[in-house]
C-alpha cells in the first residue's frame, strides 16, 4: 500500500488582520501552519500505516519555506516528503495547482511505487476552494471521494475502499475501487502529536525537492500564472451593513420583553411568519 498525502502550508488565517487605515492584509508575522484539514488526511494515512502497514509520502507545492510543513508531517510519521518548488509554479490557481500536484503523484508512483490512495484536505484555509482535490483526481483518472468523515474499510487485497461522505442532510456510504482520491474532513480523526524521536528525526530530515526540470513531460503552458484561467481583479473589505440599532437597554426584564414584542409585532413579521 502506498499513500500520498497532499499538504499545503498556509498562513494561520486567525492571525491575519486588516489594516484599518489602508484596508490591506497584514500578513507580516503571521505564522505559517500546515493546512488544518490536510493533517486529518495525513493522520488517516498514518493510522492505516500503523494498523496494516503502508508507505506514506507527503507532497507539497510551495515556496522553499514550506519544507517546515513537510518536516512536521515527517515528525508525525510520514516516510518521505517531497517539496515541489519552482518560481515557475508561482501564481497558480486551482487548475494549475491540480495539474502540478497530479504530475507529482505520477512521478511519485514511477519512482517509489504505484499509488493506491491520495489524501487531500477538504479545503485550504487560504485558497479555501476544495477544488484542488477533485482536480487532481480527474487528472489522474482516479475515483474521487470528497468530504469523507469516516473510512469504514480499506481492503488492500480487493483494492476497494468504503467511506462515509458527509452531506448537508445525511451521510452517504460509498464504496469504490482504488486508486482513489479522498478529501478529508476534520471529523475523520484527531491528528496525533509527534513523538520526541519523531520530532528529532524530522528536524534532521531533508525533504526531496523537485523543480520544473525534474519533470520529464511538464507542459509549461499549464503551470503557474500562465496556466491559471482565473485572475483576481480586485479585493476589498466589505462595508458592514449600516443598521440603525434600536437599543432596548433599561428596565425590568418584563418591560424589555414587552417592548421587544411590541416592536416585532409592529413589523411584517407576524404576517410573513404566520404567527
Amino acid at each position: 500500500m502506498h499513500i500520498v498525502v497532499c499538504v499545503k502550508q498556509v498562513p494561520d488565517s486567525r492571525e491575519i488582520r486588516i489594516d484599518p487605515n489602508t484596508n490591506t492584509l497584514v500578513r507580516q508575522g503571521v505564522p505559517a501552519i500546515v493546512n488544518y484539514y490536510d493533517l486529518h488526511g495525513l493522520e488517516e494515512a498514518l493510522r492505516f500505516k500503523d494498523e496494516q502497514g503502508a508507505e506514506v509520502t507527503v507532497i507539497s507545492m510551495g515556496p522553499p519555506s514550506a519544507d517546515k510543513a513537510l518536516k512536521q508531517c515527517v515528525s508525525m510519521g510520514a516516510d518521505r516528503a517531497i517539496l515541489i518548488s519552482d518560481r515557475a509554479f508561482a501564481g497558480a490557481d486551482t487548475l494549475a495547482t491540480s495539474y502540478v500536484v497530479s504530475k507529482t503523484v505520477e512521478k511519485v508512483a514511477q519512482e517509489f511505487g504505484p499509488v493506491d490512495v491520495v489524501f487531500c484536505g477538504k479545503q485550504t484555509l487560504d485558497g479555501d476552494t476544495g477544488q484542488v482535490g477533485p482536480g487532481v483526481a480527474c487528472r489522474l483518472d482516479y475515483e474521487q471521494l470528497t468530504y469523507v468523515e469516516k473510512v469504514v474499510e480499506i481492503n488492500d487485497q480487493a483494492k476497494t475502499i468504503t467511506v462515509h461522505r458527509h452531506l448537508e442532510d445525511g451521510v452517504e456510504v460509498v464504496k469504490t475501487k482504488m486508486p482513489v482520491l479522498i478529501t478529508a474532513l476534520s471529523e475523520l480523526n484527531k491528528p496525533r502529536r509527534a513523538s520526541l524521536p519523531g520530532v528529532i528525526n524530522a528536524s534532521r530530515y531533508k525533504p526531496i525537492v523537485w523543480t520544473t526540470n525534474d519533470f520529464a513531460d511538464l507542459d509549461r503552458a499549464k503551470i503557474g500564472l500562465k496556466g491559471s484561467p482565473t485572475i483576481v481583479s480586485k479585493t476589498w473589505v466589505p462595508e458592514p451593513r449600516k443598521i440603525d440599532t434600536k437599543m432596548i437597554a433599561s428596565g425590568e426584564a418584563a418591560a424589555i420583553a414587552s417592548e421587544l414584542v411590541a416592536a416585532l409585532w409592529s413589523t411584517e413579521l407576524p404576517t410573513r411568519l404566520g404567527w
Binding site: R193, A194, S195, L196, P197, V199
Partner: peptide
C-alpha cells in the same frame, strides 16, 4: 522527560 511520547532525553 518531556511531554511527548517516547519523550526522554
Amino acid at each position: 522527560r518531556t511531554d511527548r511520547e517516547d519523550g526522554d532525553l
